[in-house]
Design a protein around this nucleic acid. Sequence first.
DNA 1: CGCTTTTGACCTGCGC
DNA 2: GCGCAGGTCAAAAGCG
Length: 291
Amino acid sequence: MEGPFISSSSSFLDQYYPTISNSCSSLTEILGDQNCNSSLGFMDLLNTQYEPHVLGPSVERDSSEGLNTPATPNTYSSISSESNDNIHEQTNTKEEEDEEDDEENQKTKKTLKAKKTSKKRQREPRFAFMTKSEVDHLEDGYRWRKYGQKAVKNSPFPRSYYRCTSQSCNVKKRVERNSNDPITVVTTYEGQHTHPSPHLPRPVCPPPAYSSSAANLPPPAQLAILAHHQNFNNYSVLLNSCGYNGSMNDNMAQPNYSRFSNASSSSSALLSDHGLLQDVVPWSIIKNEEQ
DNA sequence: CGCTTTTGACCTGCGC
DNA sequence: GCGCAGGTCAAAAGCG
């Protein structure tokens, strides 16, 4: 399975972003010369051009599924997405409160239930990607607040739940480690930021490969695309020219990026490793390739 | 003091 | 209906 990956990444677009793929003749066109003023971000694309039905049933069924895929998760990172379930089912106002016994109990239950049901699940588009990093929480330019952590079945590593701290922005993300490959961190984003990144100023004059479309991607995904566009070379150069390093926090997932940077200097290792292309190809495609 | 993290409890969805 | 697992809440603790 040496060769197919490059073509896979284009089919990735065809499969996941058919509209984009149709309107742009190549990935270069997508990521290429766009000025910094474009307001169309990745999440925008998800919402406006992304067609959920194109995806198979729950591509990102969950990262945990990806973890179990035989596609050597320790060497392949992926970007995958999940359609919006659009669960419109409203909890039918079961207003038939016959009795009022145990008022206190019911009161508390009601308030709790009201809270929950009012937030009745309306799943946002999700997409997940895997990165190699020693830190769980990859710095991506946004501020996140951890609101939960759960043990994951069949995994020694817990799953952490984060929410964007910005008011009116209900983007969430889940972070967990691959149980098979502890170095691999699976990050799942859900929702769309309603605000610009507080830590990631757009470059004044980005390199050609850097587009605003990619700019709203979480950095690892941006980087994967950047690297892909650059034929997996000069990765660190791109990072620098995007001003990305300058906005990195101290706890940024350096190990992950340094791996990419190293790839540019040791292309032989990259070739044998499929390099960044692995980070662009979704699990579903990898699966297909292996079949 | 304000913000973030931790963590146990609770809710929901799903399979059996 | 029951049990399990995933997801969320919210009080308490921690931190700068």
